[in-house]
């Protein structure tokens, strides 16, 4: 055994020689969301000097409400990006589902729950359609979802005939998620709570179930996953269907948040969700990242926009800041990935 001890001693010595920079790299390699959490805390600290109202319960609650929609979409987007895919149609699916819900309830007089179920079915079906094109027709996710983004957007406008359904025309059921939960000075809405519960369920599934492990394996190295006996196409299909379901649930959050269903809303959701995922430390190359990072990423974008607004900074600079955040996040990801080799 002396020989193997020698080897481990040598390895231990090698590890002991790691510089601080390497230690940070190794830490981020293991927990990619740490850097985004640091950025979040740092941003909260800085923006508190920009305006005294920033760190008030009222404002923080507002940030969470503003973040909930992107956070929810980003949850589904994370699943897809973990498999090394991308979904450019996520926002379009959510808006499509929200119009289906609102219009069948208001125009066709369906009961709220039935309209809701139909919207969920349509959103899930849209996700399944993406998944089918990717796994059965073997098209790249980028192309598929670029195409379906246009298709779903057009279907939405066509179906809604360009008309927004206002809050007075909507059943209380649809506005329910906009109601605040009394929690001291904080005003967390049921929508925010739903998003957090969604993240908890996804985090559990990704971390503790075989399905979650297969999602990572498929994104990490699809051929290795296939040869290891994982039914790769089935995993991919399940991811796109689950994501479609999440986008459909998000449409409920959207209606609750803006108290209306508009075919023209949510145009930024597609790209903003990718922003949140990337800032949250999930690798666009797949197989690496944590779902909670995306929630943190969504909150960071919300904090930046809100904090800069309160500090009286022009909207252009906010967009500029988000751009810098994205590039920084991806640079860090590239640097982290080197630690593995």
């Amino acid at each position: 055994m002396s020989k193997s001890n020698l080897v481990t001693d040598a390895a231990a010595e090698f590890k002991g020689r790691a510089t601080n920079k390497q230690k940070v790299q190794a830490l981020l390699h293991k927990y990619p969301w740490v850097s985004s959490a640091v950025v979040l805390v740092f941003a909260l600290f800085i923006f508190s000097f920009g305006n005294e109202n920033f760190l008030t319960p009222n404002n923080l609650s507002l940030i969470l409400q503003q973040t909930a929609v992107i956070g929810a979409i980003a949850a589904g987007q994370t699943l897809i990006i973990l498999t090394a895919g991308i979904d450019l149609s996520c926002g379009a699916i959510a808006i499509f589902a929200s119009m289906v819900m609102a219009k069948t309830a208001f125009v066709n007089g369906w009961p709220g729950w039935a309209a809701f179920m139909l919207g969920i079915a349509v959103g899930t079906g849209a996700g399944a359609f993406n998944g089918w094109l990717i796994t059965k027709v073997n098209l790249p996710p980028f192309i598929v979802t670029l195409g379906t983004f246009n298709v779903f957007s057009a279907l939405t406008l066509f179906y809604a005939t360009g008309r927004t359904i206002m809050d007075k025309e909507l059943e209380p059921f649809f506005l329910y998620l906009g109601n605040p939960i009394p929690l001291g000075a904080f005003k967390i809405t049921y929508g925010v709570l739903l998003v957090i519960v969604m993240y908890l369920i996804l985090a559990f599934s990704l971390r503790y179930t075989g399905w979650g492990r297969h999602v990572y394996a498929v994104g990490d190295d699809i051929e290795a996953a296939r040869l290891a006996g994982i039914q790769v196409k089935r995993v991919l299909m399940s991811v796109y269907i689950t994501a479609g379901f999440i986008f459909a649930v998000t449409s409920w959050v959207i209606i609750g948040r803006v108290a209306a269903a508009s075919p023209n809303s949510g145009t930024n959701l597609n790209l903003d969700s990718i922003t949140a995922v990337v800032i949250g430390g999930t690798s666009l190359f797949g197989g690496r990242g944590a779902i909670f990072g995306s929630l943190i990423g969504a909150v960071i974008v919300g904090v930046f926009r809100n904090g800069l607004t309160l500090a009286g900074v022009d909207l252009y600079y906010q967009t500029f800041a988000v751009g810098v955040l994205i590039i920084t996040a991806v640079s860090i990801d590239q640097w982290i990935r080197k630690a593995g080799v």
């Binding site: 990572y216 394996a217 990490d220 190295d221 290795a224 996953a225 290891a228 006996g229 593995g340």
Partner: peptide
């Protein structure tokens, strides 16, 4: 089968790789 490409998933740990596909 042990493939020439090894068919291991780099980001997953050793135990996860050993049981990959039959957790």
């Amino acid at each position: 089968t042990v493939y020439q490409t090894l068919a291991v998933s780099p980001a997953l740990d050793i135990a996860a790789n050993l049981y990959l596909g039959r957790e």
